[in-house]
Structure formats: structure tokens, C-alpha cells
Simulated assay, not measured.
Amino acid sequence: MIGMPWPEWDRDILVSVNRLGSPQWDGAWSLATSIVAWTPLYLGLLYGVARSFSGKRRLAVVAVVLFTLAFTLLTTEIVKETVQRLRPVNDPVMLKQLRVVVLAPGYSFFSGHASNAAAITTLFILFMRKKLKWVCILCLWPLVFGLSRIYFAVHYPLDVFTGWLAGTGIALAVYFFMGRQLVDYAAYRETVANRK
């Protein structure tokens, strides 16, 4: 997979978006790309789960989210090490065309930020859609998170788009093949325990 051809449009879009950047916007986009900056969202999601589910079901939802996150991280790293696409800021050919603000180690394809954000968002929407009507607004999180990676030229658009697809796909698979059943089983166990 090393040295495989990548589409020209992918590089062109990256350069165009990166050149739109300016020092006035760098601070806001730095905040958008920081995992720490999104901590209030994570805490809010956990609070929503705590309020919406009882004991065993709450633990089941958190377990499914943690499993999905770990699986997504592992999948992303395996693909990155297999494909070994250089990040734009680490590619000597691309570097001449870019406005470099941040540097990042490792490989580019596909974006872990995008895949993880998409996976968590998809799961919370699936689990919370009947309990919180506004939960679909969470889709803004992976969108902004992913675009920030392109803005700083640490990922190509194709890396981010593939990350969104991979994270969403993994979350859907986990939810439909394991997550729902685990939460239903937890609800059943609560019912049995309450009868005693």
C-alpha cells in the first residue's frame, strides 16, 4: 500500500482550505481540534446517559461506547500502519504549498479524530434518540473536529471523510450486533432483580 496513488483533488482541496486560514482564526481552530476542549461535551453525554438509563442499562451503554472507542482506535491504527500515507505537513512535496501551523507525528490515512468522533456521535444518537429530541445536533461535533484537521493540514479531506465513514460504520455494527442486545439484557436483569 505504500506509495499508492492518491487523487489530485484530495491535495487540491487540502491546499485551498489550508490557504484560507489566517492567524486570526488559528486560535479558534486550535480549540476545535483539541480533544481537551471537547471535554464538556463528553461529560454532558455521560450525564445524559446517567439521567436517561437506570443502573445496569447505564453501565451497558458506557461499556458499549468504550468498546466501540477502543475498537475504532485499534482499527484506525492498523489501517494507518498498513497504508502509511504521510501527513501533509510531513510530506516534503506538500510542505512547499502549505501554511504550516502545527506539526503531527504518525501517518495520515485515515483520521483518528474523525473516526472516533463519528463513532461516539453515532452511538449516542442511536442510544439517546428516543430520550433527547435534540441529540442529532451532535453531528456538528465530528464535522467541526474533522474540518479542523484539514485546516491545519494534518489530514487530507479523504482521510477525514474515510474516518467519518469508518467510525459511523463501526458504531452501527457494534450497536446492531451487540449494543442493543446488551442494553436489553441489562434491562431484563434489572427486572429479574426487582422481582426478588
Rank of each mutant, 00 (worst) to 15 (best):
P5E: 14
V93A: 12
E81R: 12
L43C: 13
P88S: 06
F71G: 11
Y175E: 09
E77F: 02
A153R: 02
V144H: 01
L41K: 02
Y188V: 09
H113S: 05
V17L: 01
G163H: 04
F53V: 07
L66C: 12
R149Q: 09
L143F: 14
A166Q: 08
Y107I: 04
F124P: 00
D12R: 12
M128S: 03
C139A: 11
S148I: 04
L143M: 12
A32D: 00
F145P: 06
I78V: 15
L172G: 00
I170L: 09
E8Y: 12
L165V: 15
N194A: 15
K131S: 07
Y42K: 06
S148A: 14
V61W: 00
T76E: 13
V62A: 13
A60H: 06
G55I: 08
V183C: 01
A166L: 12
L138D: 05
R195M: 12
E8Q: 14
Y156N: 03
G112R: 00
L140D: 02
Y156I: 07
K130P: 06
G179L: 07
S108P: 00
L46K: 03
F67Q: 10
E81Y: 10
Y47H: 10
V79E: 00
M178G: 15
P23K: 04
G106E: 04
K96P: 05
Y156P: 01
P157V: 04
Q97K: 13
K56W: 11
L73R: 11
V65R: 02
A104S: 14
V49F: 08
F176P: 07
L31I: 11
L165S: 08
V89C: 15
N90L: 10
L172F: 13
S22M: 11
L103S: 14
W141H: 07
L59M: 12
A117W: 03
K130H: 13
T162S: 15
L165Y: 08
Y42T: 09
L98S: 06
G44D: 04
N18Q: 04
A114E: 07
K96M: 11
S22T: 09
L172Y: 14
L95Q: 15
W38V: 02
L20P: 01
M178H: 10
A114L: 07
D10C: 02
A60W: 05
P157F: 03
R58C: 12
F161E: 09
R99P: 03
I120E: 08
R189K: 14
G44Y: 08
D10V: 04
Y185R: 13
